[in-house]
Design a protein around this nucleic acid. Structure first.
Length: 605
DNA sequence: TAAGTCTAA
DNA sequence: CGATTTAGACTTA
């Protein structure tokens, strides 16, 4: 067995931000008296006062009430406030980057790659007066920045190997680039502190920060001092093989439970645990790894006989798993993570809305919930994908056109008394082209929602659940994906990554940029994709475009209903004034939607 | 492209 | 643990 120690690169400086109990902070910013923030039946998060009194994250609400009777529960129905706050803080940080590498993870975490800023400032250091250094925040404006002491780390440092008196490099520990890496981490720590305090003073949010050379390590090391702290993982990151010392990376990461490593989730940690605990390499039973050990640390895994990328590939690999997962996991275990901090993106790659239910088993209910979900979705699209038009701000334009809409459900297992069927807890889904009428800004949301539900979502639902009853859903999700970004007007706006787009998409984009920006012709896309038959390609068609799309989606219905699917599909429906009932299928809907609905039926079969 | 899996907050 | 909701990266066919 060769020394399977993979090479570690540490040419980057990455900062990881984690806002302290973010959800609670959002409310505290509005009303300091508030105590905790639950979502549905569970407390998603709580502030530190609540934690001091014995509450914790993901706790059941009634449980929390028993422990702290006067707890203030805030319903988190409205995620928009969190989304907005998250975006605001993210924008604040983004303004500091030079390379645009700022990546959000959930609402309350941000990675920043500040390598270029750090390198630039390293070159400015005056070796004769390191204590009085100046950190320049803008490349071409020396007046913007702050004074700092570049002989000291800002905030906490983590080192297993005790650092010597001199805070500057200890040359007794032979490492590659020890000195330079230390200097750059110091720079990074001061920049991090500047940003962290800026976030606190100017936005009112405290955060916990980690500084290291990759996403994995900066995220993990930040946890050492929270809340309101920052920690830098100190060198040496690499030590020569013949030394008895460990690198600080190894020393740091080794103590973690294997499942705590970002990227190694529930499934993978289970597999690894099973292997390390219960099947010690055939022989050598039990002596070292035997006993009844509960937790498996990174060190346990790393030192397991024969452990390496190949073994991990065997343990973790298999059909449906990521290729090269063994090598990747082996890297993580060794503190290696070469994944890039993503460029700031103007548009999300996907938007989805979902809700869960204790009981959802009739069509009228489904129809109602689909309307609710679709309404949220359309509104979200109009918030996240619309931008004020550059020239006159009275008009808005779509910055991206999602091409695909997907409906997912999670059927509740039947739980049969007589027999055997206890079954999957997983989601099933159907997807198809997103009709163009959703981009129409003249129609009201209600009109769009109604058309979308009747013409697209219900047909998908039928494919998912061919029988009108007999199912019971615990979850419904609607999402849009496959964003086709509109090219930015001036080269300025951050859409710099356009080179990464597929060539074909670029050509298509050019074509329809000439036309009405609010209604991209799917027809052209499909013609280029050369798969669909009999689709009108008349680009001058205004409202007709939606009809074309309808025809497109209608393509799939017969193939479904023809085979093994039942045909009886009438639901008994609750009566409601202001609503009409369809003679064909029994669905009810607002009067204005009936025309479209009837057209839908006329296209059926 | 469509459907699904795993991960993470 | 699991409970929930949203999102991204990835596989298979």
């Amino acid at each position: 067995m060769t020394s399977a120690k993979p090479s570690r690169r540490h040419d980057r400086i990455i900062i990881h931000f984690d806002y302290d109990c973010f959800y609670a902070s959002v409310f505290e910013a509005e009303n300091p008296a508030l105590k905790s923030v639950p979502l549905k039946q569970i407390i998603v998060t709580c502030n530190y006062e609540a934690r001091r009194r014995g509450l914790h994250k993901l706790q059941l609400i009634h449980e929390a009430r028993q422990i702290v009777p006067d707890v203030v529960i805030v319903l988190g129905e409205d995620l928009n406030r969190f989304r907005d706050a998250s975006k605001e803080l993210y924008k604040f940080l983004e303004a500091f980057t030079w390379n645009g590498k700022v990546e959000r993870l959930g609402f309350d975490e941000v990675f920043m790659d500040v390598t270029d800023i750090v390198d630039f400032n390293q070159s400015l250091l005056n070796p004769n007066d390191l204590k009085n250094s100046y950190f320049q925040l803008q490349k071409n404006d020396p007046t913007v920045g702050f004074a700092f002491d570049s002989t000291k780390i800002a905030g906490h440092g983590f080192a297993n190997i005790p650092q010597t008196q001199s805070p500057m490099p200890d040359t007794n520990i032979p490492t590659d680039d020890h000195e330079s890496l230390m200097a750059r981490l110091i720079l990074g720590s001061h920049l991090a502190q500047h940003l962290r305090l800026g976030l606190e003073e100017q936005k009112g949010y405290t955060s916990t920060v980690g500084i290291s050379t990759n996403k994995l390590l900066s995220k993990l090391v930040g946890n050492l001092n929270k809340p309101k702290g920052q920690t830098t993982l100190l060198p040496p990151y690499v030590v020569p093989d013949d030394r008895e010392v460990e690198s600080n990376v190894t020393a740091f990461i080794d103590g973690h439970d294997i499942g705590k490593i970002p990227g190694i989730g529930f499934k993978m940690s289970q597999k690894i645990r099973n292997h390390v605990l219960s099947r010690p390499a055939e022989f050598e039973l039990g002596l070292i790894y035997g006993g009844t050990k509960e937790s498996v640390t990174v060190r346990d895994v790393r030192l397991f006989p024969g452990m390496g990328p190949e073994l991990l590939e065997k343990v973790l690999g298999g059909p449906g798993t990521e290729r090269g997962i063994g090598g990747k996991a082996w890297g993580l275990i060794n503190g290696i993570d070469d994944t890039e901090v993503q460029q700031a993106k103007k548009v999300p790659t996907q938007i989805s809305i979902e809700d869960s239910y204790t009981r959802l088993d009739t069509m009228p209910q489904v129809l109602k919930e689909l309307r609710i979900l679709a309404t949220s979705l359309i509104k979200r699209m109009q918030v996240d994908l619309l931008e004020d038009d550059g020239d006159d701000s009275t008009t808005r334009r779509w910055i991206a056109h999602p091409k695909t809409v997907k409906l997912s459900t999670r059927p509740r297992p039947p739980l049969n008394s007589d027999g055997t069927r206890a079954r999957s807890f997983n989601r099933i889904s159907r997807s198809g082209p997103l009709p163009n009428f959703v981009f129409n800004l003249k129609d009201g949301v209600d009109v769009i929602v109604e058309k979308l539900v009747l013409e697209t979502l219900i047909p998908m639902f039928r494919k998912l659940h061919p029988y009108p009853s007999g199912w019971n859903l615990s979850l419904v999700n609607i999402g849009i994906t496959n964003m086709i970004e509109t090219a930015s007007d001036d080269g300025n706006g951050g859409g710099r990554d356009i080179g990464r787009m597929f060539k074909r998409q670029e050509e298509v984009l050019k074509e329809w940029k000439v036309e009405d920006r609010d209604v991209p012709p799917d027809t052209i896309l499909e013609a280029v994709a050369e798969s669909h038959d009999a689709i009108s390609t008349d680009p001058s068609a205004g409202n007709e475009v939606s009809d074309c799309t309808m025809t497109g989606s209608e393509d799939v219905i017969p193939t479904q209903t023809s085979a093994d699917e039942p045909v009886e599909w009438d639901d008994e429906e609750v009566e409601d004034e202001n609503r009409e009932i369809c003679h064909e299928c029994g669905a009810t809907m607002p009067a204005f939607a009936m025309a479209a609905h009837e057209r839908f039926h006329s296209l059926e079969t």
